[in-house]
Computed example of a mutant assay.
Amino acid sequence: MTDLNTAMCLIISTFEKYAGKEGDKHTLSKLELKELLQNELGELLGKASDKAAVDRIFDDLDSNKDNSVDFAEFGKMIFCLTVMCHEYFCKK
C-alpha cells in the first residue's frame, strides 16, 4: 500500500478501536472520544484530560447534535489538526 493508503487505514482503524465500546460501533460517545484524544492525540492536544476542553471539542464535532461523533465528524477534526500541524511546520 502507498503511504497515503496506509494513513487512511490507520485513521479508520483508530476510530473503530474506540467507537462502539459504549454502544453504536459507528460513533464515538463523549467518553470514547475522551479516551481516543488522551491515548492517540494527548501530546498534540495537551488538554485532552481537561473535562471542559473535551466537552467543547465534543460539542464542536457533533455537528448534527445527536450526542455522538460519527466518522465524518471525526474526520473533520483529523483534517483540521493535520492542517494546523502543516501550517506550524511550514513556518519553521
Rank of each mutant, 00 (worst) to 15 (best):
V83T: 06
S63V: 09
F74G: 02
D66Q: 12
K34S: 11
C80E: 14
I57K: 01
L33N: 11
S29H: 10
E73G: 02
A53E: 13
T82I: 09
I78M: 07
S29D: 03
H86R: 05
L37V: 03
D50L: 03
K65T: 05
L81M: 15
K30C: 09
E40N: 00
N39Y: 05
A72S: 14
K30P: 10
L33F: 13
Y88P: 01
K47W: 00
G42S: 12
R56Q: 11
F79M: 15
A52E: 08
F71L: 12
N64M: 04
N67P: 05
L45W: 00
D66L: 09
E32K: 07
D62V: 00
A48E: 02
F71W: 07
D55V: 11
D50K: 01
F58Y: 11
M77R: 12
D55Q: 11
R56V: 05
R56Y: 02
D55R: 03
N64D: 15
K65D: 13
R56L: 09
K34V: 00
E40D: 06
L31S: 15
Q38W: 03
D55M: 08
M84D: 02
N64S: 08
V54Q: 05
S29P: 10
D66W: 09
T82D: 04
L37I: 12
D60M: 08
V69M: 06
L81H: 10
S68W: 03
D62R: 08
T27R: 08
D62A: 01
V83C: 09
E35Q: 15
I57P: 00
K65Q: 13
A48T: 10
F74D: 01
M77Y: 14
L36E: 11
D55W: 00
Y88D: 03
H26P: 00
L33G: 01
C80G: 10
I57D: 00
T27Y: 12
K30I: 14
D50G: 09
N64V: 07
V69Y: 04
D50T: 01
K65G: 05
D59L: 14
